Simulated assay, not measured.
Amino acid sequence: MKFDEDKIIQSTINRKQLKIRFSKNSNVYDSFTELEKKAFEEGNISKKHKELMALSISIVIKCEPCIEWHVQQAYLAGASDEEIFETIDVAIEMGGGPAAAYSRFALNALDFHKKQTKY
């Protein structure tokens, strides 16, 4: 588990540190982050459910930084462990064996963020 924690810690550090660099040097990064904010706003579908959808997609496309982010955001939006497991079930059905392997990373990310977050 230590390896996965290190990977998750590094992912969060990279996201925070490189955001400023991207913002200063990319022509599209800030527009993308605005798109992300709009896409995940509360609407007819709750932010929690949007984050769970994004988590499932992230697992299927095998994007560990996306998995880490959307696990955290789903958890912070109130997703229960059971809802996250059902989301993982959908990802496994849609993505097969590779999705099952990346789902383990999602569980490690959930455990990590639960330890980091104090309500």
Rank of each mutant, 00 (worst) to 15 (best):
C63S: 04
Y119E: 14
Q73G: 07
F32H: 06
P65M: 07
K19I: 00
E86L: 01
A79I: 03
I45Q: 10
S46L: 08
F112R: 06
I88N: 05
T87D: 05
H113F: 14
H49P: 07
Y75M: 14
I61P: 03
E34G: 09
L35K: 05
F40S: 01
D30Y: 01
L107K: 02
A54F: 08
K38Y: 08
A106D: 05
D4T: 12
S26T: 06
V71N: 08
H113C: 03
K62H: 14
K47M: 11
S58A: 15
K47E: 13
I45E: 09
Y102P: 03
V90P: 00
E51S: 13
I59T: 02
Y75L: 15
S80T: 15
L55W: 07
F105T: 08
K24P: 06
F32Y: 15
I88F: 07
S11W: 01
L107F: 06
L107W: 04
F112A: 03
S26K: 10
P98L: 11
E83F: 01
N14E: 13
F105D: 02
D81P: 00
L107D: 04
S58P: 07
V28E: 12
Y75H: 13
V90Q: 03
N44G: 14
A106H: 05
Q17S: 12
E42I: 05
I84M: 11
N44T: 15
F3A: 14
A91R: 00
D89Q: 10
S23G: 09
G95D: 06
I59D: 10
Y102F: 14
D6R: 13
A100L: 15
A54D: 02
E51R: 09
K50W: 06
Q10K: 13
L18S: 12
L107N: 02
F105C: 05
G97H: 11
L110F: 03
A109Q: 02
T12W: 08
Q73W: 00
G96Q: 05
I84F: 04
R21D: 07
R104C: 09
Y29H: 11
E93K: 12
D89M: 10
V71M: 11
S58R: 05
R21P: 00
K19F: 13
D111N: 12
K38G: 08
Y102N: 03
N44L: 13
